[in-house]
Amino acid sequence: MTERRRLQEFLDAARVDTAVSALRPDYRALLIAVDGLVPGPGDAGSEALLRRAEAVAGTWLAERQVTDLPQVASWREAYQGFGAKPNRTRNSLEALLRRTPSGLPRVNRLTDIYNAVSVLHRIPLGGEDLTRYQGSAALIRATGNEIFDTASNGETVIEHPEPGEVVWSDDAGVTCRRWNWRQGRRTQLTDSTTSALFILDALAPLTDEALITAADDLCGHLKRLGPEISIVRRLITADTSGAPGTSSAHGLPSENGRS
C-alpha cells in the first residue's frame, strides 16, 4: 500500500458524530494527513513565521480584548454548549493569542509552524503523530468512560472526560479533550515525528473560504519539511457527518504533495 493510499484510508474512516453536529451545525473539521516529514528543531523559517504571527496578533489586540475577537467568542460559546467553563479551560486559539504579548512557545519546527498558522488565521489547529493512532480519528460526545493520558508534575496520569464533553478520540481513547483544549501524550508530536495529522476546527464566523486558505497556508509550509512530502486532505461538515469520500465534493480533492 502506498503512503498516499494509507493516508487517504485514514481520512476516509474519520468521522464527526451527529451529536456534535447537532450541538453546532456550523462546525467543520478539515483534516490533513502528512507523511515524509523530516523532524528538526525550529529553524529560520519557523522563527520568522512565529514572529509574524506575534506581530499580527499584536495589532489585533492593541484595540480589543482577546475575547472580543469573533472567532474566539464563537468558541467560548461552543464550550459553554457542552458545559465547559471557557474562563477555566480555554480553546487552543484563545490560549495561543493570550501568549503572543510575551512570545509564542518555541517547540520544534513542526509544532511552531502549526501554532503560527493557527494564530495568523484565527483558527484552532492541532497536530498529532499519525503513527500513534489506533484506528482513525472521531469527534464525539464522551460517555465519561474514555481514557485520556496526560501528565501532572512529570508523572503520567489517566483522566476521563466529563459525560457529554466534546472530544477527539481513536479506538484507544481520547486524543484531545474539550474539542481543542488539551492534547493527550500518546499521540503528541515529538522530535521524531515523520507522519502527522493536523485538525483545523472551524465555527462561524470563519467561512469555508477562510478555512481552505488556512489549510493551504499550512500545507505550503509543510512541503518544505522534507524532499518527499505526501499530503491528503478531507473536509467534514454537518451534512456529510463523517461519510467517506466527501473531499472532492467540498473542493478539497486529495492531493499528492510530493515536491
Rank of each mutant, 00 (worst) to 15 (best):
M1P: 09
T2Y: 03
T2C: 05
Q8A: 15
F10M: 14
L11N: 04
A13T: 09
R15S: 14
A19D: 07
V20N: 02
S21L: 10
L23P: 04
L23V: 09
P25A: 07
D26E: 14
A29I: 00
A29W: 00
I32G: 03
A33Q: 02
D35M: 02
L37F: 13
V38E: 15
P39Y: 06
G42W: 03
L49V: 04
V56I: 13
V56G: 03
A57N: 03
W60I: 06
Q65D: 13
L69D: 06
W75E: 15
E77A: 15
E77Y: 08
Y79E: 15
K85G: 10
P86Q: 07
T89F: 11
S92P: 00
A95V: 00
L96Y: 12
L96M: 13
L96W: 09
T100H: 10
G103V: 10
R106H: 11
V107Y: 03
D112Q: 07
S118L: 03
V119S: 04
H121V: 04
H121I: 05
I123S: 04
G126Y: 01
G127Y: 00
E128H: 12
Q134R: 15
A137T: 05
R141Q: 15
A142D: 01
I147E: 07
D149L: 13
S152T: 05
N153K: 14
G154C: 13
G154Y: 11
E155L: 12
H160R: 15
P163V: 12
V166R: 08
D171G: 08
G173N: 07
G173P: 06
C176W: 04
R177Q: 14
R178W: 08
Q183E: 13
G184K: 05
R185S: 10
Q188D: 12
L189Q: 03
D191P: 04
T193Q: 03
T194W: 01
L197K: 01
F198E: 01
I199T: 15
D201E: 12
L203I: 11
A204D: 15
L206V: 14
L206N: 01
E209Y: 08
L211D: 01
L211P: 00
I212Q: 09
I212V: 14
T213S: 15
A214S: 11
A215L: 03
A215H: 02
C219I: 12
L222G: 04
L225I: 11
P227Q: 09
I229K: 06
S230N: 07
I231Q: 02
V232C: 12
V232K: 00
R233T: 10
R234P: 05
L235F: 08
T237L: 08
A238F: 00
A238Q: 09
P244Q: 10
T246D: 10
S247G: 15
P253E: 13
